[in-house]
Write a protein that binds this DNA or RNA. Structure first.
Lengths: 141, 141
DNA sequence: TATAATTATGATAATGATTATCATTATATA
DNA sequence: TATATAATGATAATCATTATCATAATTATA
């Protein structure tokens, strides 16, 4: 919270009612991955007239401040999640049956990244997604 | 080639002029990652009247036969590449400066996948992208 | 072979997520 | 308070992709 407020203050980002609504939705949904449309409906419970453009603008800004992480899902839609200091990388497991998105922690990728460094690359970030079945759906099969 | 023909025969996929054009474009661009639009322009050199719908249909079919791999780039566009037997997984490095897409081989991810297996997941596939600078652009900086 | 069914194609409309535009409203500053 | 600046919401525009549909090509059948 303090970290977030510091970031907002530093970039002199005014916290209007609508922006507060979006931010609150994201805070209340810590650990979940919301689409812009989902954020819109949740945010309207707090700020009933908020429009989709403002939601996009706010999510974009918060992502650029690294308050949120933004990443592509289902091949056609971004989803946003609250950033947590501990995990700078976003590794996801998508359940092909129920759509559940879980997080993978751990950083086995450092090894791969240093291989690439040796080859002359400069790696800034990475993204890893697993596709399969979550424990619950896997059991049912 | 034989493998591809076998797959096409098995699924009784008729190789019309347009489909042959798309397939040839992909064969000639082995190792490259083409968007549907790019395939369209190349294919029109062979089959001048081919339409974008046929390109999409053909790419989709070839991807479902695993003749091609399809994956999302730049957050808004699929790109297709000729599948090669050796690599069943598609790990990419995207250069943020020049847009070059290179391949990473090796499969350090098996370890991560078996961790997930132990947690009850059933992993079917994965996708890994690195973002950074290719050796050429990295040198220039 | 002629004809009927089937499949493939291309033009184009529809879709869905995202972005741009612009008039209006809210806020900050002189 | 007047004025400049920033934020907002409605909606149009964009762009990749998908759906539709009339027509053309191919295949199967009588």
């Amino acid at each position: 919270m303090d970290v977030i407020n510091a970031k907002l203050r530093e970039s002199s980002y005014r916290l209007t009612g609508q922006r507060k609504a979006v931010l609150n939705v994201m805070l209340e949904n810590k650990g979940r991955h919301l689409s812009a449309e989902e954020v819109l409906w949740e945010a309207r419970k707090i700020s009933p007239n908020i429009g989709i453009a403002t939601v996009y603008r706010t999510l974009e800004k918060l992502a650029s401040l690294e308050v949120l992480y933004k990443s592509m899902f289902e091949g056609n839609k971004y989803r946003y999640e609250l950033a947590e200091d501990e995990k700078h990388h976003h590794h996801h497991v998508l359940c092909l049956a129920c759509g559940l998105i879980s997080e993978v922690s751990g950083d086995l990728l450092h090894e791969l990244e240093s291989d690439l460094d040796e080859q002359g690359y400069k790696i800034i970030d990475h993204e890893l997604k697993f596709y399969g079945y979550c424990p619950a759906c896997n059991k049912k099969k």
